[in-house]
C-alpha cells in the first residue's frame, strides 16, 4: 500500500511535467493545426541555455528565466523563419520540416556542448520527504508540481481573461473572420509559437534533472510521452492536455514501479496505440461545433 501511494505521488509529479509539455503541443496545434515534432529538441536547446546560465551565475532562478526567454525567442524564430513558409498542401510537410529541425538542433547541441550527459543543478532537495513513515514527494517534486500549476493557471487566465488571449483564440478558430475584424492573425501565430516554446522550455528545465542529465537527446522519450498525453486528452483541449499528462504520468509510474523501468517506453506506445484505436479524438474531444 505504501508503495502504491509512493508511485501515485511520483506519477503526479512526473505527470505534471508531461502535462506542461503536452500543453505546449496543444498550444501550437490549436494555433497552427500542426504537431510540433521539434518541441522536444527545442526544449533541450533552451535547457542548455538555462543550465549554462546557471553554471555561469550560480543562480538557478536566473537560469530558469533565461531558459524561458530563450524559449520565447526560439519559438518565434522557428515560426517566422521556418514554419511560416511550409505549405499546407502536403500534410506531411510540417512534420518533415520539424523532424529536420530536430536533427539540426541535436547536431548543433552535440557540436557545441558535446554528446555526453551533463549533471544539472537543482534548487531543492530531490530526496523524498517521509510523512508518517511513508516516503512521499521530494521538495523538488513539490516545486515541479507548483510550477506547473502556476503555468497552467496563468495560461488559463491569458486565454479567457485578456484581449491577447481572445485574439489568439479567434485567430485559431476563424483566421479569415479575425483578419476582417482587424486582428493581426500572422502575429498571433508567432505569439502562439513563442508561448508554446516557453512552456516547453520550462518543462524541459523541470524534467532534465529527474533523468540522466542534460544531453541533446534528453527529451526524446519525454516528447513521445507528452505527445501521448496530448493525444489522450485530445489535441484541441488544454484541459485535456493537463488531465492526459497526469493520467499518463500515473500509468507510467505504476508500470515502472510494478513491472520495471524497461517496460516504460513499451507502455507509452501501447497506451498511444490504444487511445488512437478506441478514441482517436482523445478523451476530451467534444462534438464539433456546427458551422451553419
Amino acid at each position: 500500500m505504501d508503495r502504491f501511494l509512493f508511485l501515485t505521488l511520483d506519477g503526479v509529479s512526473t505527470g505534471a511535467v508531461y502535462a506542461a509539455f503536452a500543453l505546449a503541443l496543444v498550444l501550437i496545434w490549436r494555433a497552427a493545426r500542426l504537431v510540433n515534432f521539434a518541441q522536444g529538441a527545442m526544449a533541450v536547446a533552451t535547457a542548455y541555455v538555462g543550465y549554462a546560465v546557471v553554471s555561469a551565475t550560480g543562480s538557478y532562478w536566473l537560469g530558469l528565466g533565461a531558459a524561458v526567454l530563450a524559449g520565447l525567442a526560439l519559438g518565434a524564430l522557428v515560426e517566422r523563419v521556418l514554419m511560416r513558409f511550409v505549405g499546407h498542401a502536403n500534410p506531411l510537410g510540417d512534420v518533415i520540416v520539424a523532424l529536420g529541425l530536430v536533427l539540426l538542433i541535436q547536431a548543433v547541441l552535440g557540436m557545441v556542448f558535446g554528446n555526453e550527459y551533463r549533471p544539472t543543478a537543482v534548487p531543492f532537495d530531490t530526496d523524498a520527504l517521509t510523512v508518517g513513515g511513508i516516503a512521499a514527494m521530494s521538495p523538488y517534486d513539490l516545486w515541479v508540481l507548483g510550477a506547473v500549476v502556476v503555468v497552467v493557471a496563468l495560461l488559463a487566465l491569458l486565454f479567457t481573461r485578456t484581449s491577447l488571449g481572445l485574439r489568439m483564440r479567434a485567430s485559431a478558430f476563424a483566421p479569415e473572420v479575425s483578419r476582417l475584424l482587424g486582428v493581426q492573425v500572422s502575429r498571433m501565430l508567432t505569439v502562439g509559437w513563442a508561448l508554446a516554446a516557453a512552456v516547453g522550455a520550462l518543462a524541459g528545465m523541470l524534467v532534465v534533472p529527474t533523468g540522466l542529465g542534460l544531453h541533446p537527446h534528453a527529451m526524446d522519450l519525454v516528447f513521445v510521452i507528452a505527445f501521448t498525453a496530448a493525444v489522450v486528452g485530445g489535441l484541441d483541449s488544454p484541459a485535456g492536455a493537463v488531465v492526459g499528462g497526469l493520467l499518463v504520468g500515473l500509468i507510467l509510474s505504476y508500470v515502472t514501479g510494478y513491472l520495471g523501468p524497461d517496460t516504460t517506453p513499451l507502455a507509452v506506445l501501447v497506451l498511444l496505440l490504444a487511445v488512437l484505436l478506441v478514441r482517436p479524438g482523445g478523451l476530451f474531444s467534444g462534438p464539433r461545433a456546427r458551422h451553419v
Binding site: 479567434a170 479569415e176 479575425s178
Partner: peptide, 9 residues
C-alpha cells in the same frame, strides 16, 4: 458569407 460568427466564442 455564412455570417462569420466565431462559433466557439
Amino acid at each position: 458569407e455564412g455570417r462569420g460568427v466565431v462559433a466557439e466564442l
